[in-house]
């Protein structure tokens, strides 16, 4: 602190600190605390708030466990978020390897520009774009029929199909960049050493490159999984009647039933259960939190 004051002066230092504190406290901690506190209170008519019925209770949380439909929606959300994460990995790993070890360094800026251009458009617009692309008489079906790949148009937006496509599209870069960083930090000599010792390409990946990029894969997976499970825009726009996302239930509690208490409880359940799930998966793959922060 005294070091910062010496370097930037008192005014600048206190401005930095106050802004950071404001952001953390007012925009992150307080709203969450408010929801957290609310999640333990019953949903009451306005007149009863603060009255004798307004006591702390676990009832909101228990609502979830009493509702098989909500539990199943939660499980499917976790399952499909995992699938999204896996698909993202399958797309991002070869691409990251290509970008970090195969592509000429001079062409990297161009390639990254091409990759990031979609991010210039807001998520909601991109989801709408997929809504149009995937519609029954949309461009994708027309293209596939014209190319004689399919005979009849495919109903893309049924089940979780379109949600998967939308989520993968939206979050694949969150997988790409950490893996790219991880592979780039691998000494190319190690890849060559493996090859020189007679290793075929797949074994080099399995024994040398994949283990080295594990922290990158882990942090990318955690990000993609958490973002997917917590996504509301893509499921709202691209889901069908047969696919419900857990965030949609939270939204229904809050905005359709106006029951913010149960909604908050569900939101925290999503956070807690997903964290547990991620921790369990990380244990299985022997990834430490410190690896990810590296």
């Amino acid at each position: 602190m005294s070091d910062m004051i010496r370097r930037y002066g008192f005014t600048l230092t206190s401005t930095f600190c106050l802004l950071t504190a404001f952001w953390l406290l007012v925009l992150v901690i307080l709203p969450n605390l408010y929801l957290f506190e609310n999640s333990f209170r019953p949903y009451l008519p306005v007149v009863d708030i603060g009255g004798p019925k307004d006591v702390y209770t676990l009832k909101n949380y228990l609502t979830f466990f009493d509702s098989p439909i909500h539990i199943s929606v939660f499980i499917w959300t976790v399952v499909y978020s995992s699938i999204v994460t896996f698909i993202c990995f399958v797309i991002a790993y070869p691409l990251a390897y290509y970008l970090s070890k195969v592509a000429h360094p001079r062409s990297l800026p161009t390639l990254f520009l091409i990759l990031t251009i979609p991010l210039w458009v807001s998520e909601i617009m991109r989801s709408f774009a997929w809504f149009i692309i995937l519609s029954l008489k949309g461009p994708l079906n027309i293209l596939l029929i014209d190319a004689s790949v399919i005979e009849k148009p495919i109903r893309w937006m049924t089940g979780f199909r379109s949600v998967l496509i939308g989520l993968v599209y939206t979050y694949v870069l969150f997988m790409l960049f950490p893996i790219f960083n991880a592979i780039q930090s691998l000494d190319t000599n190690q890849i060559e050493a493996a090859e020189d010792l007679g290793s075929p390409w797949w074994r080099t990946h399995w024994r040398v490159i994949l283990p080295h990029s594990k922290p990158g894969i882990a942090s990318g997976s955690v990000m993609v999984f958490m973002l997917s499970a917590g996504s509301i825009l893509v499921p709202t726009l691209l889901a069908s009647t047969s696919s419900r996302w857990f965030t949609e239930i939270i939204q229904q509690w809050m905005f359709e039933s106006n029951d913010w208490n149960t909604g908050s409880a569900y939101a925290f359940l999503l956070l807690i259960l997903c964290t547990l799930f991620v921790t369990a998966v990380m244990r299985t793959f022997r990834v430490k939190l410190s690896d990810i922060a590296r």
């Binding site: 000494d187 060559e192 050493a193 493996a194 090859e195 020189d196 010792l197 075929p200």
Partner: peptide
């Protein structure tokens, strides 16, 4: 012949040992 098919073994300047094994 690719490097993995040649009867040669290379010792790299920085050795390139596999640190995770």
């Amino acid at each position: 012949s690719r490097p993995n098919q040649r009867p040669t073994a290379l010792i790299f300047q920085n050795l390139a040992l596999f640190p995770l094994m």
